[in-house]
Simulated assay, not measured.
Amino acid sequence: MAQQAFEDVVEDFEFLEDWEDRYRMVIEMGKEMPALDDALKVPATKVDGCASQVWLHPRIEDGRFHFRGDSDAMIVRGLIALLLRLYDGLELPAVREVDAKAELSRLGLEENLSSQRSNGLRAMIERIRALAAETA
């Protein structure tokens, strides 16, 4: 059920032979992502449960879930970029139907992220699902 943008990442990952190359790709995706305006980095947009500072700012347009995000850690910015490719632009009910764990497992993330990063990733996913539910 992943969007094409996420499927493209899965396809790109298949061509990368080791996790270091994949890690670099995730970081590059984070670098390419536009920074979140400092005015949006407020307690209401901050994600609890992450070792790094993380902010997610949702926007609903025509019944579709959109968000922007940012972090003070490069790998976490990359994880946000992955989540953007997975969730951004979905209809609100579809956000809750995405099996993020299964989709992200296709990238081999769980076995290659520290437990703190994995916990933070889960916190971001839970926050996205909650934001979509709040606005539905």
Rank of each mutant, 00 (worst) to 15 (best):
L92I: 11
D37H: 11
L36M: 12
R24H: 13
E32V: 00
D99F: 09
K101G: 11
L109D: 03
D62F: 06
L109E: 06
L84P: 04
G63F: 01
R122H: 12
A130W: 02
F13I: 10
L121G: 04
R22Y: 01
E7Q: 15
L16A: 07
V47Q: 02
E110L: 11
A133R: 11
D18F: 13
S52N: 14
S105H: 14
W55K: 09
F13L: 09
G78N: 00
G49M: 05
D12I: 13
V10F: 04
V26S: 04
D37V: 03
H66S: 01
L82C: 02
W55G: 07
I128K: 06
R68N: 11
E17Y: 08
A51Y: 08
L104A: 03
V95I: 12
L113D: 05
V42I: 15
G89P: 02
K101R: 14
S115L: 07
E134C: 03
E126Q: 15
I60C: 05
V98N: 08
K41G: 02
E61N: 11
L40Y: 14
A73R: 07
R85D: 06
G49R: 09
G63T: 00
D12E: 15
A39L: 08
R129K: 15
I60E: 09
M74P: 07
R127D: 10
E17I: 10
D21S: 13
K46M: 10
E61I: 08
E111D: 13
R96L: 15
F65N: 03
E28P: 00
